[in-house]
Design a protein around this nucleic acid. Structure first.
Lengths: 242, 242
DNA sequence: GCCGATTTGTCCGTATGTATC
DNA sequence: CGATACATACGGACAAATCGG
């Protein structure tokens, strides 16, 4: 595909917002202005704008203009939930020092119980990986990743210690397209207490997720157990007119 | 506005998925099929499909088709986080019996502390509302809603006991467009323990949110404190090609 | 491996409606 | 009221990915 035309438009406007060139409350130039500026049709401009809307940067107002509603976030590690972002991406965006410790790395087969929980077919060969994320010296996150081996051949402890997603995207040329995540909270298990620096907390924030690749195959099931005071999940949403 | 044409298309396909007429893994009829079926252009069909994609129901695959990746959820009350949905909407979708108890209803003025926390200007007149949500006989959610009075004139305890959003949309003709929510977990405060049926749990799932209306005014700040085992938050995301 | 049919992805140009100012 | 802005929809063109023969 010849590179998409809406993408540099999206990026350009987004950059203007993130650098403060367009501040909170400001109105963007009109769609027609952008049409001239980028030499494309209004449809293409609108496509870029609709992405910015979906991402919570702007709010279009019928008859008035498109307003910036984005303000930079504060000090905890912020995980964007309205978007797919790997742990490596989130922490680097938040400028934290992170060490990953591999707690377990093995190949297993899905039995009935695991199949029910994860959605993988019974008998599938799976990579089972447990990792501890140590952020600024504190063990804060206990990650369990289960990958469908047939789709992620070649994973190794060394890769897991670095960034699995970088491997999947760069080496296996896999495209991650859609994910579904659930956020709940649970009482801490003895395993959590043992592996994490929970301080006085006796509960954890649990995020479970399923990730699909571009072939529509669910190839990953993840559970992340977080110390509750150190993370938050942010999302922005646009109301459906249903 | 004359009713949008993509909207019944979106609803029709979504219903087919939710009722299982189109099951997990199935491919949808092609865009051209829908074009004929609904008597519109492909663009309009694509608009409906892109909404279904954003909502995590389907995954389009270039050259292959559009696949269903949605599976109905289990027994907890599921709150869609990738979408704006009022409590009344979520519970009715989950078929729960709900009673709302008004714990507090007053008009206050934003001081510096509140302003910092909520983002309202100092001196703004605000409705301050506390509500307990009793689901199937158990007090599970402690809601604090703060509304900008100038934008939501006429709120009353009676309305708060029913559905505030219904009032805003139907009576004040306000359009809710964008919200931003954060999910965290906290230790239960004495107030939580007093007002909620927390069972043995001593922590709560906290969702805070800011809601914007169609004029770009942030008119609501909300904090919901949930018993952790009875709710979960779901979102789905599409990876940006940036 | 190639070709053609099918299907989704991108983009154009145009027209009309409707909200705001 | 007119000008401007966003919202919706149409119809057409071509590109790119997939799949079957």
């Amino acid at each position: 595909m010849p590179k998409a035309k809406y993408e540099p438009i999206y990026r350009s406007i987004r950059e203007d917002i993130e650098t403060g060139k367009l501040g909170y409350g400001d109105f963007l130039p009109s769609e027609n202005d952008y049409t001239e500026q980028f030499g494309c049709t209004r449809n293409t401009v609108r496509r870029a704008l609709s992405m910015l809307t979906a991402d919570g940067f702007v709010l279009p107002q019928h008859g008035r203009g498109v307003q910036v509603i984005y303000r930079p976030d504060e000090n905890r590690t912020v995980f964007t939930i309205g978007g797919i972002e790997s742990f490596a991406e989130a922490t680097s965006r938040n400028q934290k020092k992170v060490v990953t410790k591999i707690e377990s790395f093995k190949i297993i087969e899905a039995d009935e119980k695991l199949s029910l929980k994860t959605g993988f077919d019974i008998g599938s060969e799976l990579y089972y990986i447990e990792r501890i994320r140590v952020v600024d010296g504190k063990a804060l996150i206990f990650d369990t990743n289960i990958f469908l081996k047939s789709e992620t051949e070649g994973l190794s402890p060394a890769i897991a210690a670095d960034s699995i997603y970088r491997y999947l995207e760069n080496s296996l040329h896999m495209t991650i397209t859609t994910s579904r995540r659930r956020v709940t909270a649970e009482k801490a298990r003895s395993r959590d207490k043992e592996l994490l620096d929970l301080d006085t907390y006796d509960f954890v924030l649990v995020v479970t997720g399923q990730v699909f690749n571009s072939k529509g195959v669910m190839f990953e099931y993840t559970q992340s157990r977080h110390r509750p005071d150190q993370v938050c999940f942010v999302e922005s949403a646009v109301r459906q007119k249903v």
